[in-house]
């Protein structure tokens, strides 16, 4: 997945300026930068969640399998099934655990009960949650702990089997143990999924990602292998940020 010269405006104010960035297959790409730098906006434009905010417009292209996702041939519903998203605040539906995971499948038209159950189990296993919830699949999802809820949201996103998984600060509201579990999970997921993760936490970026992109004031300053960005950045601004001089 790749963005080319993507500029996105809220009204007339540009939130991101001419960003060109590739999210490589089966790699974890971390988007870092100070608050308001446009990294979340960029992430949300990858599955067109920004369409929901009135007054946004864009120029440039975002390619997924060589097709511009804004092309008329691309249906936004199909796009979002291929590019899943996990949000900063866990947001399970007030339904049972099972129904939460099955939601994307049901709206996609899957009716066969056995197939649904199979996919739910697979997704929950994929999100390393199965063992914790297998005995209470039909209890409300709101009874889970914060970390479990976030993993449930990941399972829910995995259930529709997307190619790309976007994560918007998925662990920022969690305690260290739950965060570690999520990070471990990201590690496992990257063998099957292409992942882009926005994070505030530079240690986390360093731990989980293969590539890191540094955003500043709506622009992409630098992008490269994570190790290089953190040890030997090309840009002064990147160095200042990763060494904690501002941000």
């Amino acid at each position: 997945m790749e963005a080319r010269e993507l500029t996105l405006r809220y009204g007339t104010k540009a939130a991101i300026q001419k960003v060109s960035l590739a999210i490589l297959d089966r790699r974890v790409t971390a988007l870092i930068g100070p608050s308001g730098c446009g990294k979340s906006t960029f992430l949300r434009s990858l599955n067109r969640m920004n369409d929901l905010i009135p007054g946004t417009n864009h120029t440039g292209t975002i390619l997924l399998d060589d097709t511009d996702i804004h092309d008329r041939s691309v249906d936004v519903v199909d796009l979002r099934r291929r590019v899943g998203m996990v949000f900063q605040k866990s947001n399970p539906f007030p339904k049972s655990i099972f129904e939460n995971v099955a939601y994307g499948l049901r709206v996609g038209g899957m009716k066969d009960k056995a197939a649904l159950a199979q996919r739910v189990e697979k997704s929950l296993r994929g999100a390393a949650l199965w063992d914790e919830v297998k005995d209470r699949l039909h209890d409300s999802a709101l009874g889970l702990s914060g970390g479990q809820q976030q993993r449930l949201c990941i399972a829910r996103a995995l259930a529709v089997e997307p190619q790309v998984l976007l994560m918007d600060e998925p662990a920022s509201a969690l305690d260290p143990i739950a965060t570690a579990k999520i990070e471990e999970l990201i590690h496992e997921l990257k063998s099957t999924y292409t992942i882009a993760i926005v994070t505030h936490n530079m240690q986390q970026a360093a731990r989980v990602s293969d590539r890191t992109a540094f955003f500043y004031m709506g622009e992409l300053v630098e992008c490269g292998p994570t190790e290089q960005i953190f040890t030997n950045p090309r840009e002064k601004r990147t160095e200042d940020y990763v060494t904690g001089k501002f941000g």
Partner: peptide, 8 residues
């Protein structure tokens, strides 16, 4: 050039 099939 982006490859653009018709809407399914």
């Amino acid at each position: 050039t982006a490859f653009a099939p018709a809407l399914s």
